[in-house]
Computed example of a mutant assay.
Amino acid sequence: MNGAVRRGPARGPGRLACAAAVLLAALWLWPAPPAIAHPHTWIDVVVVFETNPDDAVTAMEQTWIIDPTYSRYLHDDAMQQFEGATPEEKLANLGAEILDNLGEYHWYTEVHADDQGIAVRPEGPPELVMRDGRIRFRFRLTLAQPLDPRRQTLRYAVYDPTYFIEVLHEPATPPRLELSTGPCRLDILKPRPDPAIVARALALDYNQTGEADLGRHFAETVTAQCD
C-alpha cells in the first residue's frame, strides 16, 4: 500500500499529525534506516469526479484509505479523545477535525484546467469509518469554476507537500470521470524524482522538513482525455 498523512510540531493536518509521535516509538524499533526517513505514513486515494448536465466537471470526491498502523492509532485516539455517544459519532468528529485542519494544505489537492489552477473547497460533511482494519476518509471538494474536460485539459495531483505522507492512487480503483457520452481516459503519470531529491528525503528525520513542496517530486499526476 502506498500513500500517507503528515504531522509535525507546527505544521500538518492536526489529528493526523499527532499520530506521528506515537508512530515514532514503533519506527525507532525498526532496524532498517528507511524506517526513520520520509515518508512515515501511506494513503491509497480513490478519486471520482462529478459533472453537471452540461458535462462540465464541478467537484471531485476523494476517499483516503490509510495504512493499518496509522489507522489503528487514529481509531484508538478518536475513541479516547473525541466526544460522541457511539464509536461512529466519535469517528465522525475526528473526520470533521481532519478536514478542517487540511485546509492549510489545500486538502493536498491541485487541480488545473490547461495551465490555470482551479481552487477547491470542501462541501458537506466528510465520512470517516474503520473498515477491514483501515480508516477510510471520504470527502467532497467543489471546484471554484466548472471545467469543460472536452475543451480544457483537466490535470490534478493529490500529495502532501511535506512528504511526511505518501499518497498514491489505489491500484484496483483507478480515478473516474464519466460524461454523458461515456467515460474519459485518465492517465496516471508516475513520479520520477531526481535521485538527489530521493536521497534528501531519505535523510530527513521524523521531525524534520525538507525544501518547500518536497512532496511534489513524489506525486502522481493525472491527466484526463475526453472525447
Rank of each mutant, 00 (worst) to 15 (best):
T41E: 01
W42E: 13
W42T: 15
D44A: 13
D44G: 09
V46L: 06
V46A: 07
V47A: 15
V47Q: 12
F49W: 11
T51G: 04
D55T: 06
A56C: 15
A56I: 09
V57K: 05
V57Q: 05
T58N: 03
T58F: 01
T58V: 09
A59L: 02
M60Q: 08
M60F: 08
E61H: 13
E61R: 14
Q62V: 11
W64P: 01
I65N: 09
I65S: 06
I65H: 10
I66H: 06
I66E: 06
P68I: 01
P68L: 00
P68E: 02
P68S: 05
P68Q: 01
T69A: 15
T69G: 10
Y70W: 14
D76N: 13
D77V: 12
A78H: 02
A78F: 01
M79G: 02
M79K: 02
F82A: 04
A85D: 11
A85L: 01
A85R: 10
T86F: 02
T86H: 02
P87T: 04
E88P: 01
K90V: 03
A92W: 07
N93S: 09
L94N: 06
G95N: 08
A96Y: 07
A96Q: 14
A96M: 08
A96C: 08
E97M: 14
E97R: 14
